[in-house]
């Protein structure tokens, strides 16, 4: 039972990270019907920028751990959001009227480009987050000792998801995003600036993805320039699992996939851990391509 609960909470933490990345995929897909392959690499940028800012600014020494990490998260989110907007401008906007394949290939190219820029700047080896900055504290929850970082990640990811959900559902801008996702030309006729909506989506998604990257760095303590595509693929699986284009779906899919993977790794086989998500992906596409919560089916997959 102890082990089960440990794996479950671990799965929820990883799942929260998947969900945050998955939101980026699902929002872009909702508006542009495009799989943003470079999203996973924006996530990696979050992890690397977080590392650089953490070590070079020594924020946690100056203003204390809690405030330091909060400032760090905000800085990383801001920077990765800018990067996301630049990506949209350079790789996707020129291809908006082109056939699907062109945009997909351009997305892949952007992914490769971003990944290799990181490699050339930081080197190909694993980069380690300094462990003296991070508290190794554990929380005692009814006799179960859970690392503090795990709890923080679950809380932070849930908080961000709730904030995004409220933003999309309750504000005027959120309504514009939803309208553009349903029908772009109709939204344009209603006076919505679709270009700005797309730009906003490419700010919001990467911001969340960047935060997720920082979380992975803080949780596992090490980052690698290729990790974006594994996490990206898994988060994409999560988005499909919940129903692509569907924001609550991405959240549910992410948490579910994290738990499935953690339990599968613990009870089935650790060596096949990375294959679990891909099997889930293939199964869901065969059995229920619209995903668990995918009620909104624009066209046949």
């Amino acid at each position: 039972m102890e082990e089960f609960l440990q794996q479950l909470t671990n799965g929820l933490a990883v799942g929260g990270i998947y969900a945050l990345i998955a939101l980026g995929y699902t929002m872009v897909y909702g508006v542009l019907k495009l799989i943003n392959f470079a999203h996973g690499d924006l996530f990696t940028y979050g992890a690397y920028l977080g590392l650089t800012l953490l070590t070079s600014l020594a924020l946690t020494d100056r203003v204390g751990f809690a405030l330091g990490v909060l400032v760090l998260v905000l800085m990383v989110m801001g920077l990765v959001a800018i990067l996301g907007a630049m990506l949209e401008r350079a790789a996707y906007r020129p291809l908006r009227e082109s056939p699907r394949l062109s945009a997909v290939v351009s997305a892949l190219g952007a992914s490769i480009f971003l990944q290799n820029t990181l490699m050339l700047v930081y080197g190909a080896r694993f980069q380690v987050y300094p462990d003296e900055i991070l508290p190794a504290a554990t929380l005692d929850v009814f006799g179960l000792y859970i690392p503090l970082m795990r709890v923080l990640i679950v809380l932070a990811s849930v908080a961000m998801m709730v904030a995004l959900y409220l933003f999309i559902q309750k504000t005027r801008i959120g309504t514009a995003i939803r309208a553009a996702a349903i029908d772009q030309s109709a939204a344009r006729l209603m006076g919505i600036d679709v270009n700005r909506v797309i730009l906003l989506v490419f700010l919001l998604g990467p911001a969340l993805g960047g935060a997720a990257g920082l979380m992975v760095g803080l949780y596992y303590g090490q980052v690698n320039f290729t990790m974006g595509w594994v996490y990206g693929m898994k988060a994409f699986t999560a988005a499909i699992l919940g129903g692509i284009g569907n924001i609550p779906g991405a959240m549910v899919g992410g948490l579910l996939l994290g738990v499935i993977e953690a339990l599968g790794a613990a009870y089935v086989s650790i060596a096949w851990k990375d294959a679990i998500a891909f099997c889930v992906l293939i199964l869901i596409l065969i059995v229920r391509p619209t995903g668990l919560l995918g009620e909104r089916v624009a066209d046949k997959i």
């Binding site: 350079a90 082109s98 351009s106 190219g109 490769i112 480009f113 820029t117």
Partner: peptide, 13 residues
Amino acid sequence: MLVFGLVMMVMMV
């Protein structure tokens, strides 16, 4: 690979 990625993006445009 960096050049490949860039070429893929530019070619598509």
